[in-house]
Structures are given as C-alpha cells and as structure tokens.
C-alpha cells in the first residue's frame, strides 16, 4: 500500500537518515520526500512528508521503528487513489510479460493497476484486456497512462484510451 508519513526533524545533519533507515529495513520503497520548510514548528523542527510503498502488515512496525530512532512521527495515512480510469489493451498481452506491464505502473508509487479483465479467444490470437488504473490525482493518472502507452508501444499492444478521464 501507499502511505504518507509526516515526521518532524531537527534542522541538523543526519536527522533525515534516522527516519529513512527503518523504511528500507522493512522493505519499503520511498516514492518521495518533501521538506515543508515553510511550515517550520515553534520548536524549529521541519515537517517532512515521506511517501512510501510498503506491505500493509508492516506499517505499524515501521512507525514504531522510526519513533525508536528518536524521530517525532506527527501523522501517517494511507494515500487515497482518487483518480481512476479504464483502458483497453489489444494484442499479445500475456506473452509480452503481463507482470512486467502491470509492474511498470505499480512501481511508480503514484498509480496502481486495480482491476483487469482479460478475454483470450484462441491460442496465438490477440487477447483483449480492460485495465483499470487508479492514481493519487488526475495529473498522476495521465502520467501513468503515458507510461502504459510507452510500454505497450514497445510490446506492439494497441491501447484504446477513454474519451475523457472521469
């Protein structure tokens, strides 16, 4: 799952590492780190927003580990994927490594393939898949669609996009 953690760090070297080190230890993948320097706290700490992709079951342990490192965790939330759209793929979808095609979207950290419906008429015939992608916002959804289009161009798969992103 995708989560956002907001930590408060002292404005000193080495502070960020204390927050980041447990993430790799728990198998998390850092998507973005954003220093909110304009929101400095009265105690001169800097809020830092860290977005990561991590196994849902390990989130609590991760937060615990970050706290143990002496870092203040102000909040953490699952990132909601608010923009969703469906696209149709036509071609040799399975034999061109479907796992890889999906992973190129999922590994972005801002978008996921959330549903897929495949129709395979006959062996060696092109298959058709309706792929539903969700992303954190419409801008990111557009980027995910571009990634999918580029992947499919490589694999000679035809992409049929929706008329409008809803």
């Amino acid at each position: 799952m995708l989560i956002t953690i907001v930590v408060e760090l002292k404005d000193q070297p080495g502070q960020l590492l204390k927050a980041l080190e447990p993430i790799s230890r728990f198998g998390g993948n850092i998507v973005s780190v954003y220093h909110q320097r304009d929101k400095i706290t009265p105690l001169k700490r800097i809020p830092v927003e860290i977005t990561i992709q991590i196994d849902e079951k390990r989130v609590n342990d991760l937060i615990e580990a970050i706290r143990k490192n002496g870092v203040i965790v102000r909040s953490y939330n699952e990132v909601r994927l608010t923009a969703t759209t469906s696209l149709l793929l036509i071609g040799h979808i399975i034999h061109t490594d479907l796992g890889d095609t999906i992973n190129r979207i999922d590994s972005t950290g801002f978008a996921e393939v959330v549903d897929m419906h495949i129709s395979m008429p006959q062996l060696n015939q092109p298959s058709t898949a309706m792929v539903t992608i969700s992303a954190t916002n419409e801008e990111k959804l557009k980027r995910a669609i571009e990634i999918l289009k580029n992947t499919c161009r490589e694999k000679d798969i035809t992409v049929i996009e929706p008329l409008e992103l809803q």
Partner: peptide, 16 residues
Amino acid sequence: TKITPEAFEVAMDKGY
C-alpha cells in the same frame, strides 16, 4: 485495423 470483436465485448461489460 487491430480492433477485435472481443474488444467490444470487454468494453461493453464496463458500459463502453
């Protein structure tokens, strides 16, 4: 030219 009849079936399931 590459559109298949199945494409319409799959699309239709989602109302397209």
